[in-house]
Design a protein around this nucleic acid. Sequence first.
DNA 1: ATTTTATTCAACAAAATTGTTTAATAAAAG
DNA 2: CTTTTATTAAACAATTTTGTTGAATAAAAT
Lengths: 197, 197
Amino acid sequence: MPLKDTGTEQLIKDTTKRMLFGEGKLFATTQEIADAAGINRSAVHYYYRTRDQLIMQVFQESMIALSNRLDDAMGSSASFEEKVTEIIDIYLKEMMSFPYEETFMVTELNKAGQQLVAEIKAGPVQIFLEEVEAEISAGRIEKMSPVNFLMNLFALLSYPIMMAPLYRQFFQIAKEDFDQIIQERKELVLRLVLKRP
Amino acid sequence: MPLKDTGTEQLIKDTTKRMLFGEGKLFATTQEIADAAGINRSAVHYYYRTRDQLIMQVFQESMIALSNRLDDAMGSSASFEEKVTEIIDIYLKEMMSFPYEETFMVTELNKAGQQLVAEIKAGPVQIFLEEVEAEISAGRIEKMSPVNFLMNLFALLSYPIMMAPLYRQFFQIAKEDFDQIIQERKELVLRLVLKRP
DNA sequence: ATTTTATTCAACAAAATTGTTTAATAAAAG
DNA sequence: CTTTTATTAAACAATTTTGTTGAATAAAAT
């Protein structure tokens, strides 16, 4: 908590987030982070005593911000379909910017043993899950546990993006063609989870 | 390539695979691997000069084995629906045993820069993709790029399992209840991708 | 004008990990 | 019985990374 705000602290966090979650350099050293930010390594330690503290800070702020945006969407007064559309928008945008964020979560959760996941405000998610249940009862979506509905949604949005470098190799597809295929997914996922024609 | 086969080399590989891809200890040191296998660290270096060589060996053998099983399923003479059922079986079983295998792929691909992904036999996958296209033309599955069909399938199978520890925390669900929910997925995924009633 | 603050710089200690080497041991193969 | 092979053990060098420290500098705040 510096008295003059020179923006350096924020620069460090932004750079760290971009490198780790954006570019997938999950093992970036403090030196590499400092270099990427164009500052001295000492400055990193000036603001965050340890590398771990820095990374946890960045990660938690990311998760809280995303969680809040999703909560807003889930708890809004919009219709169910509008909510789903909004969730897709939010999630897809986040994943396109930071494809390695969830991969990081998975790898770190074992290491840390800590409480990595932000405390969930039970409210909005619960409300949304109840709405899912209502849709199922009304026969407007496939019969399943509401939790599975949400996991399906996240799976269809996240997985192809986090696996993109692999699948491009796997399917031998040029980058532009693959981007085209990813683009198709936004509407596709909506149709799929809502089973609309 | 030892002359007497004492099973130690295989033990090292099996232990490594279990620790890394099964338990998610992606950063296990050679010492930890040796301990888990109940052997001396020197033995690890006796069979594999470097840690990297060991891990790459384990990973590539895994991928080739899985790839072969999937190719068999995709290239078989079964009906389309039987093929999809078989793919779901294979993939789900693999993911349940080794939930961190794909996460490892993602984290390593950046590091290695190498050719991590086994050379794909273009044959079976291509054949299957053509069948997908035929199903789409016949209107039996949703209109989409065939690649997206396969990615949807893998996404729905992989993601919930690799994210299980997170989602259990997220949804505040007991392990047994969550396992129940995962169980539901096998039929659910089939119904979803084939849009059957 | 003086003090505070942010940042750099250089150097260093400590720890962790890796890969190597050499010798010893014990079992299997010949 | 002798040799080969697998494995352990101990010690070590090299490397990497981290976190700390103390001094220097320059800008901002008072």
